[in-house]
């Protein structure tokens, strides 16, 4: 317990952590401020015009929707090829008056994208703080000093990781609540809340939850990489090298050698699948089953969030396990 208290104190007192919290707050503040400045409460006239435009749009879409359903039912090749997929994409129910309101923040339509932004920033925060927290301790001699007091390497490293994850989670929960609450408030006073129903809240809740879990995994990965490399920059180097060598270079090479599904080999696909619930990707080549009566060949495939969880969690467990195993027997300077 004493060690936990000491580590909480150490984490909170780190200037880098304080600076990152400040930057995080600034980024969120700027986002909220620009949204606030760019939105206004629509007048009755604006709402009326938007509703009229939406009604007109619905009438057009209704015809396409009916054609799509008919093509699905009869298998008419010409129509089926035109719509290429799910008829719900052209459902009139998807047309909303808020689509025709410019300069108005609509909570239920825009908050999901803003949530992805929130998660991305929290991930960056977690990775940098996680890497720096242990990296600085290893290079500054803080770890050596601590081990002279508590010569239990696994306990010390585990406490550091636990404290870090708890701290990042706590901050992320508070930041998420403030962030989402601010946009909800903006929607109430200078925009529109839309029509958030139960499925919307469930979807948002799951997205935030998965996002927070991603933040914890990324934080642990930063911590593990810096522990393995004995330095903060090791984690940054690994991240940069992965992005450049694999996500960019590897993708190009795989394109040249005609790998059918390069996206399936990219970590970013699993990150998006995990946070968004699923990701639809298109194979570069491969066999497909043309839809009956049409020449359309659908090479798309999906990665769902459970696959994302397995890959990300597996990577995290591997990295953290490797870091602990290495640290257990490492000679410390």
């Amino acid at each position: 317990m004493n060690l936990v208290r000491a580590e909480i104190g150490r984490l909170a007192a780190r200037r880098f952590v304080q600076l990152m919290v400040l930057l995080l707050g600034t980024a969120f503040g700027v986002t909220i401020a620009t949204t606030l400045a760019g939105s206004h409460q629509p007048t009755a006239f604006e709402v009326q015009v938007a509703e009229a435009q939406a009604a007109n749009q619905r009438a057009n879409v209704q015809r396409w929707y009916a054609e799509c359903l008919e093509a699905e039912r009869t298998g008419a090749s010409e129509l089926s090829a035109r719509y290429q997929g799910n008829c719900e994409d052209v459902s009139p129910d998807r047309v909303d008056a808020s689509d025709f309101l410019s300069g108005v923040f609509v909570f239920d339509q825009q908050i999901l994208d803003l949530t992805y932004f929130l998660i991305a920033f929290l991930c960056l925060f977690g990775f940098l703080v996680g890497a720096s927290y242990i990296g600085a301790d290893l290079t500054s001699g803080g770890m050596t000093n601590l081990l002279l007091w508590r010569p239990q390497r696994m306990v010390v490293l585990g406490t550091k990781l636990g404290t870090l994850l708890a701290g990042v989670l706590g901050l992320s929960v508070v930041a998420s609540a403030l962030y989402l609450g601010s946009f909800r408030l903006i929607a109430e006073v200078r925009g529109l809340p839309g029509a958030p129903d139960a499925p919307f809240w469930t979807d948002l809740g799951l997205t935030v939850t998965r996002g927070l879990l991603l933040v914890l995994m990324v934080t642990a990965l930063g911590f593990a990489a810096a522990t393995l490399g004995r330095h903060t920059s090791a984690a940054l180097g690994v991240a940069a090298a992965y992005a450049v060598v694999w996500e960019a270079g590897g993708r190009i090479v795989m394109g040249i050698v005609d790998v059918a599904r390069p996206d399936q080999l990219m970590l970013s696909s699993y990150v998006i699948a995990w946070v968004g619930g699923e990701i639809r990707l298109w194979a570069m080549s491969g066999e497909c089953a043309p839809q009956i009566g049409s020449g359309y060949c659908d090479l798309s495939y999906h990665i769902l969030w459970p696959a994302g969880l397995v890959v990300l969690l597996g990577l995290t467990v591997l990295a953290v396990g490797g870091a602990f195993a290495t640290f257990r027997r490492r000679d410390l300077a």
Partner: peptide
Amino acid sequence: GAIVESPQFFGNFSGRRTLRLLAVAGG
């Protein structure tokens, strides 16, 4: 109690905070 080779401390902490954190960790 031990000091080993050159003393290494986290530069941004004060001397008092450094010792307090160690004191907390060691009860």
